[in-house]
Simulated assay, not measured.
Amino acid sequence: MTLRSGAGVTGWAALRWLGGRWFTGRGPDGFSLLPVPIASALHMRQQRGTQVTQERISPRDLTVHEGVVLTTAVRSVFQGMRAASTDLDAAIVAEMAMFNDLVSRDELTRYVLAHGRFHGIARARSCLACLDENSWSPQEVRMRWIWLAAELPRPLCNTPVFTRDGHLVGVPDLLDEEAGLIGEYDGAHHLDVAQRRRDIQREAEFRRLGLEYVTMVAGEDPARVADRLRAARARCAHRAPSARAWSLEPPSWWIQTDSVVARRELYGTRHEHRLGHRRII
């Protein structure tokens, strides 16, 4: 399909084309194919496999990538958030774009606040305060929302934990620093025997340092996960930083990758390999 002036591929399809690993074009069931969303300032006939949204679009919101006309990354995220069926789904769109450094929270916030008259803007606006730039998967976002729905303090995302002498113990999905509570989502690859051995050893090392641990897997009832999180936090030691066997203070050799800005600074340097897990595979 040839796109006319004032129109471009947008949403998940544009973000995938721009390098977004988690934008696969699959529906919630993991099998059905999503239509390719098109944003157009002009009337366009909807063709099979596409979903056209007609609304105003500035030339600044269009770009050409590998010969395909797309809306810019921030506009594509904006489109995906507004089209999401829930606030959680909207947050996943934004955070998975941030995973590949396609947009920062500040860039997205400025864009959303500057485009307040678009359909679905309330959904995009309502998610801004809760977004985190360091979520590594959609399921981590879902677990964090369960955590917050359980009325527990907001956890840190993928923050490295070290021993007091500066050795890396691991990077848990979620961490309540005050209580000493770790939350981990185990996907299908954790069923591999070798991976399972590593997971068990890793959990044992965290527990040896006095950290409590909760694991979530696919398909669990959110209410049950919330109950486990609350019960685990009640068991936590809540030790002062000076009394902990672990630390969040990174040693001098550690390279920070916890924000979009920090990661963008690594591209083209000898530390770029630290971002390898974020590429499309």
Rank of each mutant, 00 (worst) to 15 (best):
1 M>Q: 09
3 L>V: 02
6 G>L: 05
7 A>N: 10
11 G>M: 01
14 A>D: 05
17 W>P: 01
20 G>T: 11
20 G>F: 04
25 G>P: 00
28 P>T: 02
32 S>M: 04
33 L>V: 09
36 V>S: 04
39 A>C: 14
39 A>P: 05
42 L>G: 09
42 L>V: 14
43 H>T: 13
46 Q>C: 15
46 Q>T: 15
51 Q>L: 14
58 S>Y: 00
60 R>M: 05
65 H>C: 05
68 V>M: 13
70 L>Q: 05
75 R>F: 01
75 R>V: 01
78 F>E: 06
79 Q>V: 00
85 S>T: 14
86 T>F: 08
88 L>M: 14
89 D>M: 10
91 A>Q: 12
92 I>H: 01
101 D>N: 08
102 L>C: 09
103 V>A: 00
104 S>G: 10
106 D>Q: 12
110 R>N: 05
110 R>H: 11
110 R>T: 15
111 Y>A: 02
111 Y>P: 09
119 H>W: 09
124 A>F: 12
125 R>P: 05
126 S>W: 08
133 E>L: 05
135 S>H: 03
135 S>W: 07
138 P>H: 11
140 E>P: 13
144 R>G: 05
145 W>D: 15
151 E>R: 14
157 C>N: 08
157 C>E: 11
160 P>K: 00
166 G>L: 03
169 V>K: 01
169 V>M: 01
171 V>C: 04
176 D>G: 09
176 D>E: 03
179 A>P: 09
183 G>C: 10
183 G>T: 03
186 D>Q: 15
187 G>A: 00
196 R>A: 11
202 R>A: 08
204 A>N: 12
205 E>T: 12
216 M>N: 09
226 A>Q: 02
226 A>T: 04
227 D>A: 15
227 D>C: 06
230 R>D: 00
231 A>M: 10
234 A>N: 07
237 A>C: 07
239 R>V: 09
242 S>G: 08
247 S>A: 09
247 S>G: 01
249 E>Q: 14
252 S>P: 09
253 W>P: 08
254 W>D: 03
258 D>T: 10
259 S>D: 02
262 A>F: 00
267 Y>G: 05
267 Y>C: 01
270 R>P: 07
276 G>V: 06
277 H>V: 11
278 R>V: 07
